[in-house]
């Protein structure tokens, strides 16, 4: 099944009966040398990212940076307001009375770190992305209930539809489909 119009093909998507067989198949696919792969599951399957060779995420570092930025931002804001913009003595404390600034520094740290966590996750995951070719897979709506899917994309240098299909079937897939980039592309 060599494709002539390779540009309209997203890749081959296989369905597996459960998380364990998906994990096992992910190991085999990686051993066979495929790199443009992804897996889709209704629950996070532990060990799947390692099995597919997905790099650890930078998100945690981003959140740390957000927290540090929030802390210094909170301190800087209060310093600027209390010492520079509007200096006045309150209950005999010095203008830069840092202990009374701690609560706001803490809140600013949490706020900016939380923004970094959520929006960092969205940006790194490229969400929102309402349309994705993998949604053209038959039965893919099961991926949010109890379906486990593995994809090998056509942009993979080793991609060859029939070889990929054979590999996935051998790995225990219950259904293997070649999926187009657009909903009306032929399978």
């Amino acid at each position: 099944m060599k494709e002539t119009n390779n540009n309209s093909i997203y890749g081959v998507v296989a369905e597996f009966p459960d998380g364990e067989s998906l994990l096992a198949a992910a190991h085999r696919v990686r051993e066979a040398g495929y790199t443009a792969t992804d897996a889709f599951s209704p629950i996070p399957v532990h060990g799947l990212t390692e099995a597919l060779g997905i790099k650890p995420s930078k998100l945690a570092g981003l959140v740390l940076l957000g927290g540090i930025a929030g802390a210094f931002g909170g301190l800087g804001l209060q310093y600027a307001v209390s010492v520079e913009f509007y200096p006045h003595i309150v209950s005999g404390r010095p203008l830069f009375s840092w202990p009374s600034f701690v609560p706001v520094i803490f809140e600013a740290t949490v706020l900016i770190a939380a923004f970094a966590a959520v929006f960092g996750m969205f940006i790194l995951n490229r969400l929102p992305e309402p349309y994705h070719p993998v949604f053209n897979t038959p039965n893919f709506q099961k991926a949010s209930t109890d379906g486990f899917f593995l994809s090998i994309e056509a942009r993979d240098p080793k991609y060859d539809a029939s070889a990929v299909r054979a590999l996935l079937e051998k790995a225990g897939a219950v259904a293997v489909t070649e999926v187009g980039k657009h909903p009306d592309d032929p399978e």
């Binding site: 990212t49 650890p56 945690a60 790194l124 969400l127 949010s144």
Partner: peptide, 15 residues
Amino acid sequence: GWRGSARHWQRYEIA
């Protein structure tokens, strides 16, 4: 457009 991708779950769980 959540699709349960392994890459997404990884960052999602960290977040």
